[in-house]
Amino acid sequence: MIAAAAFYVFAAILLVSAAMVVSARNPVHSVLFLILAFFNAAGLFLIAGAEFLAMILVIVYVGAVAVLFLFVVMMLDIDFVALRTGFQRYLPVGLAVGVVLMVELALVVGGWRVLPEVAARRFAPVTPGLHNTAQLGDLIYTDYIFLFQAAGLVLLVAMIGAIVLTLRDRQGSRRQSIRVQVGRNMAETLELVDVPLGAGMTAVGIRRPPPAVADAGVAEVPAHAAAHGHAAVTEH
């Protein structure tokens, strides 16, 4: 009885929040409703006894994917009024595409035959005595190992593709190499100079003069250039 009540509660909230995802005016609210929908789907999985799937749904979709959605939606400044301007004009095309997809889906599901030997296990694919995490592991890593690995490869390719598309090497960005920093020793970093009394910095040979000296140097350059220009003019 409690399970049935919980099912209806989860299912109702799931449907309402799914509707709110598409109808909410604020995109951030849409994403939050999407998260609520994920949660209720996880609840439905729990009722069906698929605790592993429920937890994975929360971890992967709510904990990672939706965070990135939220991240992106918050950063973008989406003007939904502008997006809705063409609504009536595109409605027929959208409806047509929707109907075609629906028919295709119906064809696929309608033409789906189940092997007789599988049909017996179809709604109870469980081995008694093992809980469903172990059973999923058994199925995925023994019977379906190649399909599973192929799916992994597809995801890997997609991931590398995304990185290749978005990676651009910015010139002039400063990088930190911890290896270089840690690998420095005292000899190449620090120099102790015995400065004779009264000798100037340049006389000792220190390359980087203190600010006051640098200012004097900068001030000197135009004066020198001006003098040079003046000399050139007189020479001419």
Binding site: M55, V58, G63, A64, L70
Partner: peptide, 12 residues
């Protein structure tokens, strides 16, 4: 997994 899920929700 429950603990992992809950701690990954903390970011919200």
């Amino acid at each position: 997994l429950y603990l992992f899920a809950i701690s990954s929700l903390g970011v919200y």
